[in-house]
């Protein structure tokens, strides 16, 4: 009799909650989270969808007005036209000219700004000198001054330097405006590298440049990618500096896109405009896709600490 009762208590103990706690797929919280995510992605994807389908329709179909419907007949003519035939003023060679201008602005600006920012960030974190913190804070302040205030003074400076309206002038402006945020990024990243590593290298007889190139650079790919993405996107998307500091022959792609889309002669070719806009946005998009993973890693490593 006693044995039986022992067995039943043991069984009862085994019957309660056991193993991992079951999760409900359709809990209130889940519905809320996924609902929000779906709404948000629709909000961003719908305009993109409209742009893509419109750019693949001919004008006759565009005029019918069903902006959400896919093209009845796919045509790439608007893309070809946007790239090589659309007119801005008297030039009718499409966006291609602006694209190459942008490339010629982008490459030196990005290389120069990242080089300068990485070296200053390294200097400000590892080789602190008297007043280096003050120097850094002044630099940071630069990030908070509205561009509009500096627009005209820079015109004067560039004119005095003989760089107004030239590609070199615009490159210089991009480099200067990229300094605060990128120096901050690099400084914080290098500050997170243990001081002892730096000390060990000094005992090993390495100087400013040897430590930078042989020890620090090989460790900082992620932050270079972050900085590159910020600069490529910022410089490629720039409109204001491009239109103010250059002349029509070297207008970057964004300025030319504006001129095509806002041109007053003739009919509005919505399909061409959509194609032109997509073409202009393609470069930053490609950069994001290629380096997205490194970007997240770099942001996590460098951007957060003050």
């Amino acid at each position: 009799m006693t044995r039986v009762s022992h067995l039943t208590t043991a069984d009862a103990q085994l019957q309660g909650p056991k193993g991992p706690k079951p999760k409900r797929a359709f809990s209130g919280a889940n519905l809320f989270i996924y609902g929000t995510l779906i709404v948000m992605s629709l909000y961003y994807l719908l305009p993109l969808w409209v742009m893509i389908v419109t750019s693949l329709k001919d004008m006759a179909e565009v005029r019918m007005g069903n902006i959400f419907s896919p093209p009845a007949e796919i045509t790439f003519q608007p893309w070809v036209k946007a790239w090589s035939e659309a007119c801005t003023g008297i030039n009718c060679d499409g966006l291609s000219r602006g694209f190459w201008n942008s490339v010629r602005i982008l490459i030196p600006s990005v290389l120069l700004s990242i080089t300068v920012a990485s070296v200053s960030g390294y200097g400000l974190s590892m080789w602190k000198f008297k007043g280096s913190e003050v120097f850094f804070n002044i630099l940071l302040l630069g990030a908070f001054i509205p561009y509009q205030i500096m627009l005209y003074p820079i015109v004067i400076i560039l004119r005095e330097l003989g760089l107004m309206g030239s590609l070199g002038g615009l490159v210089l402006v991009h480099m200067i405006f990229g300094m605060p945020i990128n120096t901050l990024l690099f400084r914080n990243y290098f500050s997170s590298i243990p001081q002892e590593l730096f000390k060990a290298a000094r005992v090993d007889g390495a100087g400013f440049w040897a430590i930078f190139f042989k020890i620090m650079l090989p460790m900082s790919l992620p932050i270079f990618v972050v900085s590159m993405i910020i600069q490529v996107t910022g410089i490629w998307n720039d409109f204001l500096f491009g239109v103010v500091y250059t002349k029509p022959a070297i207008y970057p792609m964004t300025v030319q896109l504006n001129n095509i889309v806002n041109s007053v002669q003739g009919v509005k070719e919505y399909n061409v405009n959509m194609a032109a806009t997509l073409l202009t946005g393609l470069v930053p998009l490609v950069i994001y896709f290629i380096s997205g993973k490194l970007f997240v890693r770099g942001i996590a490593a460098g951007a957060v600490k003050g």
Binding site: E196, L197, A200, A201, R202, V203, G205
Partner: peptide, 17 residues
Amino acid sequence: EPSDRGIGMVFQSYALY
């Protein structure tokens, strides 16, 4: 300079490159 003092140093965090 540290490298000219005839010393070698070992750190708590190893500090290997």
